[in-house]
Simulated assay, not measured.
Amino acid sequence: MNADKRWVLLDAHGESFFSAQPGTLGGHRGSRIYGRLDCPAALRAIARGGYVGQRVFFLDEASAHAAGYRPCARCLPLAYAAWRTSSHHPPP
């Protein structure tokens, strides 16, 4: 592995920064949703094109939440259910 490798991630304020560690979660700026890097829904969207330009990465869930992103219902169903029942989002 290249010791000089840096990844661009988003912090808790939604600002980009360089990290020596890769992101563990991917997100989409437009929908403000984050999920696992192997999420089937995200991989389908990437395969269709148009998604990659809006893709962002987070080091952890706390950063994604703080930046205003919600969990993916497909790949993080328990986190999504907890988010849905919390008072931190508007009702549907």
Results as ranks from 00 to 15, higher is better:
His13Thr: 14
Leu10Phe: 00
Gln54Tyr: 14
Val56Ile: 08
Pro22Cys: 08
His88Thr: 15
Thr24Gly: 14
Gly30Pro: 09
Lys5Arg: 15
Arg74His: 12
Asp60Ser: 05
Ala12Cys: 08
Lys5Gly: 02
His28Gly: 05
Ala82Ser: 09
Ala62Asp: 02
Arg84Pro: 02
Ala67Gln: 07
Asp60Lys: 03
Tyr80Leu: 05
Glu61Gly: 08
Ala64Met: 04
Trp83Pro: 01
Lys5Cys: 04
Asp60Arg: 00
Ala62Gln: 03
Thr24Arg: 11
Ala3Leu: 15
Phe18Ile: 13
His88Ala: 14
Pro71Gln: 01
Gly50Arg: 05
Ser86Phe: 07
Pro77Glu: 06
Leu25Ile: 04
Pro22Ser: 15
Leu37Asp: 02
Gly26Pro: 08
Trp7Pro: 04
Pro77Tyr: 05
Cys72Pro: 00
Leu10Asn: 04
Gly23Val: 05
Leu25Lys: 03
Leu43Tyr: 07
Ala3Arg: 11
Cys75Ile: 10
Cys72Ile: 05
Ala62Asn: 01
Gly30Phe: 08
Tyr51Leu: 11
Asn2Val: 10
Ala79Leu: 10
Gly30His: 10
Gly53Asp: 12
Ile33Trp: 01
Pro71Glu: 06
Lys5Asp: 12
Gly14Met: 02
Phe57Leu: 07
Ile33Asn: 00
Gly49Thr: 02
Pro22Glu: 14
Arg44Asp: 10
Arg74Met: 14
Pro90Trp: 10
Asp11Trp: 05
Gly30Gln: 12
Ala79His: 08
Tyr80Arg: 15
Ser19Phe: 03
Ser16Met: 13
Tyr80Gly: 06
Cys39Tyr: 00
Gly30Tyr: 01
Ile33Tyr: 06
Leu76Cys: 07
Gln54Ala: 11
Pro90Thr: 12
Arg29Val: 11
Leu59Pro: 03
Ala62Trp: 03
Leu59Tyr: 09
Gly27Thr: 02
Tyr80Cys: 11
Ala20Gln: 14
Gly30Ala: 08
Leu25Cys: 03
Asp38Ile: 04
Gly35Arg: 03
Arg70Thr: 10
Gly68Cys: 00
Leu25Pro: 04
Arg36Phe: 05
Leu25Tyr: 10
Glu15Trp: 08
Arg55Lys: 11
Pro92Asn: 07
Ala3Pro: 15
Ala45Met: 10
